[in-house]
Amino acid sequence: MAWPLAASGAAATLGAAATGVVLLMPIDGGTQAWIDSPTAGATLMAGSIVVTAHATDPDEIDALTLTVDGERVDDDKAPDRTGLLAFGVFDWMATPGTHTLRVAQVGGSETVSDELVVTVLDPSVPAAPPVVEPTPSATVSATPSASTSPSASPTTSPTPTGSASEIPKPTKPVQPTKPAPSTTAAPPPAPAPVIDSAAFTGPWASDPKLYTFASCPYTVRVEARIRNATQARVAVSGVGSFPMSSSGSTWAATLVSGFDAGQVGTHTVSVTASGPGGTTSKTVGTLTIAPSCPKD
């Protein structure tokens, strides 16, 4: 069954748009699978990358699987479903190089998406400075010229007279100047993400507890103060991870009841933040998942 998630702030108002997902609806009602982000040909920085995808199938889709270069890297065992449409979120620890991503259905028609190729850069390797090609100057050459002006006198023995202009000496070609060495400095490395604080908030912060009954009104809110991050997620051990929305340096996510019976018990909750400078995590505390729902 799906794990519902209600994000606060901008995420609660804008839904999928708040997490950077571009929903590409299928043209027909057949079975399809496709990757929303990153996009084909994207250039990314090495580190933790969030990959999102959709699939559609008239039959039940049990899970979605992400493969990179043919190797299975992550599963979303409880994708969110809206009608025939399933939405999955994956974590990929990207390494430098060119990689091929695909998403496959588990269950239903077992449909596999088209290949999507991205490039991952190493942030610790500075970009090479541009090479300046010298432009040779034009050479100047002289072309000798001569002129003769004959003249005749009215006598019976004409004596021709003539003069020749002086032939100039050719000049030496101008040597091209050498380009000045480049003084472009390598850009400084991106600052690493920093989680200043992470905690449970709200009316049940002192005893965070959720239940298996989906309509149970109990929720748990997680807030964190994070710097130098472009994305953050709340991870519940043995259950999965959930995206957080941001408002300035404050990131938040609200977890709601509605878990499988097999997930009843105590789970460690942590916050993971990532950005161009790397990835970091911080433990929030423990969350209890209990059966049914208490009566108010």
Rank of each mutant, 00 (worst) to 15 (best):
T19F: 15
G20D: 05
P26A: 11
I27F: 14
D28T: 09
T31D: 15
Q32N: 13
G41P: 03
T65H: 10
T67V: 10
E71M: 09
D76A: 02
P79T: 02
G97D: 01
G97F: 02
G97I: 03
T100E: 04
T100K: 05
L101D: 01
E115L: 02
L116E: 00
T119Y: 00
D122Y: 03
V125P: 00
V131S: 12
V132C: 04
E133C: 02
P144M: 08
S145C: 05
S147T: 13
S147Q: 06
S147W: 04
S149G: 13
S149N: 14
S149A: 13
P158Y: 07
E166N: 13
I167F: 05
V174D: 13
A180D: 13
T184Q: 14
T184M: 15
A185K: 15
P188C: 02
A190I: 08
A190L: 13
A192C: 06
T201L: 05
G202C: 09
W204G: 11
Y218H: 13
V222G: 02
A229T: 07
T230K: 15
A232E: 07
V236S: 04
S247N: 14
A252M: 13
V271H: 02
G275D: 03
G277S: 07
T283K: 14
G285A: 08
D296A: 15
